[in-house]
Design a protein around this nucleic acid. Sequence first.
DNA 1: CCCTCTGTATTAAGCGTGGTAGTACAGTTA
DNA 2: TAACTGTACTACCACGCTTAATACAGAGGG
Lengths: 124, 124
Amino acid sequence: MFQLDYRDRRPLYEQIKEKIKALIIRGVLKPDDRLPSVREMAQSLTINPNTIQKSYKDLETEGFIYSVRAKGNFVQALSPAMNQARREELVLELEKLAAEFVYLSVPVEQLVAVIHAVYKKKEG
Amino acid sequence: MFQLDYRDRRPLYEQIKEKIKALIIRGVLKPDDRLPSVREMAQSLTINPNTIQKSYKDLETEGFIYSVRAKGNFVQALSPAMNQARREELVLELEKLAAEFVYLSVPVEQLVAVIHAVYKKKEG
DNA sequence: CCCTCTGTATTAAGCGTGGTAGTACAGTTA
DNA sequence: TAACTGTACTACCACGCTTAATACAGAGGG
C-alpha cells in the first residue's frame, strides 16, 4: 500500500496517518472502502500492530475513517461540520504559506498557476 | 517579544523557531537586527537557556540568522541559493494544501482570493 | 458449534528526545 | 578587570514512541 521512511524523524504512526489521509484526499480510497486490518498492515510494514491501531484511532477521531467491531476500518464519507473546521485550518495554513512566498519575492502569478494546475489535474 | 503556548504539544524550541521565523518573514525583524541574547530570552520566557540556544542554532543552520561570538545572534539577509531550495519546498507544500482544498470542494476562486489578500497586505 | 478473523484493551519494558540544571571556556567591550 | 556575549558538555528526569505479549468481544464461515 505504501512504505515507511525511517530517515523521517516523525513518529511512525504520524507517517501512517499522513499516507492514509493522502490516499483518501487523492480519491484512491473512497467512502466505505475497507482499510487493511490492523494486523495485516502491521505485518506488511513489519511494525507492531499497536502502532497501526494508534494511527487508525487517530484517523477515526479526526473523522477520516470509522471502525466496525470484527469487520474492519472504513473510509468515512465527508461530513459538513468536520469540513468547515478543517477548511478554516487550511485557510490559516495557506495564509502562512503565502506570507513566506511574499517574503521570498515569488510573484503571485506563480502561486496561482500552481493551484490551477492542481485543480485541473483533479478534474481531468 | 512573544509568548509560549504550553498547551501546544510541540517542543518549546520548535515554537520559538517558528515565532522568530514569522517575525523575520513579516519583516518585523530585518537583516542584521540583533535578537535577544540566549540568556535574556531564556529569562523572559522563564525557560532554560539551552532550549533557546537550540532554537538559535537550528535557525542558523536553516539560514535565517547568523551568530557572532560574544556579540549576539542577528537576522541573516536573504541568500539566493537558500531561497531556491526553500521555494521548492514551499511549492510542494502548496500543492498538498491545494489538493486538500479540492477534496473539500472549495472553489479555486476562494484560494486565489486568500492569496491576493496576503499579497496586497504586504504591499500596502 | 467451533474456528478464525476482526477491533480493542492492558501492562510492561526499552529507548530516544525534550527540557532543566549546573558548570565551564572563549571572545568582546566598556 | 568586570560583565556581557556565544558555545560546549555532563548529568538527570519526564515523557512519548514503539515493541511485546496477552486477553477479550463480536462477526462470519465451515
